[in-house]
Design a protein around this nucleic acid. Structure first.
Length: 543
RNA sequence: CGGGGUGUAGCGCAGCCUGGUAGCGUACACGUCUGGGGGGCGUGGGGUCGCGGGUUCAAAUCCCGCCACCCCGACCA
């Protein structure tokens, strides 16, 4: 029985990534290739084997969700692991994450933060100290109860949990680190002189989600979590807002993803926070994605862990806290913001390879000549700090390489053949616009350097135009429901109650994504209850 | 947890209904002709058919049980 929805596909596997393979005994079968991918970073060459499929993608209009999945798998970003809900981040995907990390890490340090590392395990008694926090995370925790295995006496060759190794107290695999960190801060803080503490941690966390999606929601994910301690409320709020600004800056300028800065409603707040600030992005399918959060934790954790300091006036005060984080989920945002039916589209600032040069040749002489020229150009580009790769691999044909680098989102491709050599030209192809032009080698590197900026900006502008055109103001519940079908953000009045928010969520699946920070005050009537409202909020269906 | 699927070569799949030599494509190896958008031809290697029982002279195929994963929903960054 055919359940796959793709046209003509006979697969009975609805999630089949490889549709063409289901065209039994027909043309265009699945192709999977091992290619050697070479990236040059700081003169060091990394050779990595990638397993890549080169068959066509499901189109976005056909099935957005499947397009996303196929793309992540086929572009070699990540794959499902043997562990349910956990993914393997593959070298190409990880190299993008590394670039994100590097940029963010510098931004954190430039704003006065230092990195540290805290334990993976949180004793259960720590987690339960802050009540709201405990309740919020209780349902999704991995729990360590024993510390030893033994050979099963009844089942040779099998292991069993040694019942004698039961822990006195269960350890929770961190879903986030507030508890263990604030327990630690207790020992670090006595006086106002010890404040502020501005620490970031790069780590993995585990949240036992019922349903997972590559990058967007996995049981284990990589992130950074900042945890700061301050003497005053005002200082902590300033920190919270500052880091939200860092996130917005990073999303927009490095990832080319436009975001809306805002605060969450009490319903959507982080468990244990007094205020949750967020950046919200809009994906191509009209669904919103929370891209980062920054929390003002008040004195909740200080009180729970009894973290006090002595003021200049020799008085005891509880410490004020913030925490903030972004995760590998941003990888999902990156893909769903820019990529198309031909594969990944990467902004130059994050692309592991920014320019690929493909020599085209028939004879050995032509090979030597084109590769020599390619290397000359590459040297010039590298001198300008551009990440460039010359693909002189003779195992693959030019056409294959073109398709391959397009799929992997390399921003610019140069092709050099005998014809170009004769005319001192190269063929330059842009991934984002899919345009090609033949241009002179003279002044090429400067042109490309400029082009990198142009592509970066162009991607952002394109995404922003889409986002801006997807914000719709409505003034009635009927309008609201109609607008929801189109996707995007909906700007509407809300009476400010959790009941109304919940009812709208149940009836329409839309949630309040945020109350934008720069929101103008405006009197109106709640779209559901008609009660007075002083400002619009942004609703959307979210990932 | 509810609903729907799938486990057969590295990957994608057919074969199962109607039991009888494990097959196709691709990838891989070698040869050869090729080479400006995913090459052609030829040869070759590669398998605990998810696991455990049962029926049978004989099980990938029929029966029972189990496991795993994927997709859709509720929960969440």
């Amino acid at each position: 029985m055919t359940t796959c929805q793709k046209d003509q596909c006979k697969s009975n596997q609805p999630n089949s990534v490889f549709h063409a393979a289901s065209f039994t005994n027909l043309i265009n079968p699945t192709k999977i290739l091992i290619v050697t991918f070479v990236s040059s970073l700081n003169s060091v060459k990394f050779y990595t084997k990638y397993l890549i499929s080169v068959e066509k993608l499901t189109s976005r209009s056909e099935n957005y969700s499947q397009w996303y999945n196929d793309l992540v798998l086929k572009a070699g970003m990540a794959e499902h692991s043997a562990v349910k809900g956990c993914m393997v981040i593959k070298p190409y995907g990880y190299s993008i994450w590394e670039r994100m990390q590097q940029t963010l890490d510098k931004m954190f340090k430039d704003t006065g933060h230092e990195n540290a590392y805290f334990p993976l395990f949180v004793p259960k008694s720590f987690l339960e100290k802050e009540e709201g926090h405990a309740e919020g995370f209780a349902k999704e925790c991995a729990v360590v109860t024993h510390h030893r295995l033994m050979v099963d006496p009844d089942n040779p060759g099998k292991l069993m949990v040694d019942p004698k190794s039961k822990l006195e107290e269960e350890l929770i695999v961190r879903p986030t680190s507030e508890a263990i960190i604030w327990n630690t801060y207790k020992g670090w803080i006595q006086s106002y002189r010890d404040l502020p503490i501005l620490i970031n941690q790069w780590a993995n966390v585990v949240r036992w989600e019922m349903r997972t999606r590559l990058f967007l929601r996995t049981a284990e994910f990589l992130w950074q979590e900042g945890h700061t301690a301050h003497a005053t409320s005002a200082e902590a709020i300033e920190e919270t807002e500052k880091m939200l600004g860092v996130y917005a800056d990073f999303a927009e300028n490095t990832m080319a993803i436009p975001v809306i800065k805002g605060i969450k409603t009490p319903n959507e707040r982080f468990a244990g926070a007094l205020e949750t600030y967020c950046i919200e992005a809009l994906m191509q399918d009209g669904k919103a994605l929370q891209a980062g959060t920054s929390h003002f934790l008040g004195q909740n954790f200080a009180k729970a862990f009894e973290v006090k300091y002595i003021t200049k006036e020799n008085k005891q005060e509880f410490v004020w806290a913030t925490s903030w984080g972004v995760s590998t989920r941003l990888m999902g945002a990156l893909i769903m913001t820019h990529s198309d039916d031909q594969g990944l589209v990467l902004p130059p600032r994050l692309a592991p390879v920014q320019v690929v040069i493909v020599p085209i040749y028939k004879t050995d002489e032509e090979f030597k000549a084109t590769v020599t020229k390619a290397n000359e150009i590459a040297t010039e580009l590298k001198a300008l700090g551009i990440r460039v790769k010359v693909d002189d691999d003779d195992k693959y044909k030019p056409g294959w390489k073109f398709a391959e680098y397009e799929f992997k989102g390399v921003p610019v491709r140069l092709a050099i053949g005998p014809r170009d050599l004769a005319n001192n030209n190269v063929e330059l192809a842009r991934r984002d616009t899919k345009t090609k032009e033949v241009i002179s080698v003279n002044g090429l590197s400067a042109h490309i350097q400029q082009l990198m900026e142009e592509i970066q900006t162009s991607l952002f502008n394109k995404a922003k135009a889409f986002r801006d055109s997807s914000i719709r103001e409505v003034n009635s519940y009927e309008e609201f429901k109609t607008a929801l079908e189109k996707g995007g953000f909906i700007s509407a009045h809300w009476d400010g109650t959790a009941e109304t928010e919940e009812k709208i969520k149940v009836e329409t699946k839309a949630t309040i994504r945020c109350i934008p920070l720069d929101n103008p005050k405006e009197n109106g009537a709640c779209i559901l209850t008609g009660k007075p409202s002083t400002q619009r909020v942004l609703f959307a269906i979210a990932y």
